[in-house]
């Protein structure tokens, strides 16, 4: 076990350094890169805190959609299997189950990558 600060604490410190100290002192095209770097540290900080449980939940949801064939597969392999099954496109029931699982998985990813992005639900612009 590493000593404190934790990864999340260090990434937060790095983000503060980039956004509060380096950004105001940076000129030209590098400014955008510093801003992006700061945002990436924020993402990684959230990943360090939330990523573990979220990967577990993703695997659980994918196994639930795929059924017994998915025993023993890791998360990457589960994603590959579901993508392959959806590509075959012969199972409307699977597609409905997949949609429900995928929206939860993607919202989980957004809670790390872009909190708040899922506040908009597109209802007002969908065809009847």
């Amino acid at each position: 076990m590493q000593d404190r600060p934790t990864s999340a604490e260090l990434l937060e410190t790095l983000a503060d350094l980039l956004e509060e100290q380096l950004l105001p002192a940076t000129q030209g095209p590098l400014r955008h890169q510093v801003r992006v770097a700061g945002n990436l540290c924020r993402i990684l900080e959230r990943e360090a805190r939330l990523g573990g449980p979220q990967d577990d939940r993703e695997a659980e949801l994918l196994r639930d959609v795929l059924g017994p064939v998915a025993e023993g597969s890791d998360t990457l392999e589960l994603n590959r299997r579901l993508a392959e099954a959806l590509k075959r496109g012969q199972d409307p029931a699977l597609e409905r189950k997949a949609w429900q699982a995928l929206i939860e998985i993607v919202r989980g990813k957004l809670s790390i990558a872009k909190p708040g992005h899922d506040a908009y639900d597109f209802q007002g612009e969908l065809p009847e």
Partner: peptide, 18 residues
């Protein structure tokens, strides 16, 4: 940023699956 587009995509086709 890929997850943002995955989310938008799923929402845009939601009426056919949800």
């Amino acid at each position: 940023r890929v997850a943002e587009l995955e989310y938008d995509l799923l929402r845009m086709i939601q009426r056919d699956y949800a």
